[in-house]
Deep mutational scan, measured.
Amino acid sequence: MTVLPKDIPGDSLKVTVGTANGKPGDTVTVPVTFADVAKMKNVGTCNFYLGYDASLLEVVSVDAGPIVKNAAVNFSSSASNGTISFLFLDNTITDELITADGVFANIKFKLKSVTAKTTTPVTFKDGGAFGDGTMSKIASVTKTNGSVTIDP
């Protein structure tokens, strides 16, 4: 049996954390987006972790974005102690894959008090994996961190 590389060099799934701005007490939304989904033969499963400074940001909610089908079954998240974990699994293993680019999740943060303008990162942590529509590992994932700026 011969195994051929399935990824064209330079191609990767792009996962990007967005940015937001606000004043202390505001609730802002930071999107997590996927790009080049079709090039990577869709997404059938993924789990990953984001870190944030809990002294500056309070997670209000984490909701599935419009590219997630049947989110009540296929999407899960949790947030505590400065870490947000995400889990997606197409429970049907074929019919509810992520097949389009767009917003995977929206994180709502309540901004805490600061004395001066502060930009705090929302960054990928170690761990996690992504699988394509056949549940094979997506070897190349380009992750881009985001941030939230609090301006009193």
Rank of each mutant, 00 (worst) to 15 (best):
T119L: 08
E96F: 02
L4N: 14
V60R: 10
V17A: 11
F88E: 01
P9L: 11
G102R: 03
F124P: 01
G65M: 12
T119D: 05
P152V: 14
V103Y: 04
A116V: 06
D36Y: 09
T29I: 10
P31S: 11
P24H: 13
S147I: 07
N70R: 13
V15M: 07
T33D: 12
T99E: 11
V43P: 01
D36W: 14
P5K: 05
V15K: 06
N91Y: 15
S55G: 13
V37Y: 05
G18T: 13
D95R: 01
V122E: 06
D53Y: 14
G146Q: 03
K23G: 09
G65Q: 09
G102H: 01
T142R: 08
K110I: 04
G102C: 06
K125D: 02
V59R: 09
A129T: 02
P9S: 09
P24T: 11
L87Q: 01
D63L: 12
D95Q: 03
A72S: 13
G65V: 04
S76C: 07
G10S: 11
L57V: 10
T33R: 11
S80V: 14
I84M: 03
N21P: 14
F130H: 00
Y49G: 00
V37T: 10
K110M: 08
K143V: 02
P9C: 13
T45F: 01
L50W: 12
E96S: 03
V3H: 11
K41I: 11
F130Y: 05
T92M: 04
K69R: 10
T120K: 14
N106A: 06
V73Q: 05
A20T: 11
D53V: 12
V73D: 12
D151S: 15
S85N: 02
A100H: 09
T123K: 14
I150H: 15
D95H: 03
P24Q: 12
T115L: 05
A129C: 01
M1R: 14
P66V: 10
T19Y: 13
A72L: 13
S136A: 02
K39Q: 09
V141M: 10
V43M: 06
N70P: 00
T33G: 13
S12N: 14
A71F: 08
A20Q: 14
K108R: 06
L57T: 12
T92W: 03
S140D: 03
V15L: 07
L50S: 07
N70K: 09
A79M: 15
I93N: 04
F34N: 09
Y49R: 01
G65A: 09
S80P: 05
A79N: 15
E58M: 14
D90C: 00
I138H: 12
A139D: 05
P31L: 11
G146L: 04
A116N: 06
L57N: 11
N42F: 15
V60G: 08
I107E: 01
C46G: 05
D90G: 04
Y52H: 12
T27S: 13
A35G: 14
S61A: 12
N42C: 08
D7Y: 11
N74A: 03
A71G: 14
C46R: 03
T134I: 13
N74M: 02
K112A: 03
L4I: 08
F109M: 05
K112C: 00
M40H: 07
T118G: 05
I107K: 00
T118Q: 05
T123I: 07
F48E: 04
S140Q: 07
T142Y: 06
T149R: 14
G10E: 13
T123H: 10
V141Q: 04
N21E: 11
K6P: 11
F75A: 00
N145A: 05
M135R: 01
I93F: 15
S61Y: 13
V30M: 14
V59L: 12
T144F: 04
F109Y: 04
G127M: 01
D95Y: 06
G18D: 13
T16A: 13
T149V: 15
T118K: 10
A64S: 11
A64T: 08
T123C: 06
N91R: 02
F104C: 02
V141K: 02
G18R: 10
F130L: 05
T19H: 11
K125M: 00
N21Q: 12
V114F: 05
V122F: 12
Y52G: 09
I150C: 15
L4V: 13
D7A: 08
V62Y: 08
I93H: 02
A38C: 14
A100F: 04
A139E: 02
T27W: 14
V28G: 09
L89M: 02
T142E: 04
P24D: 08
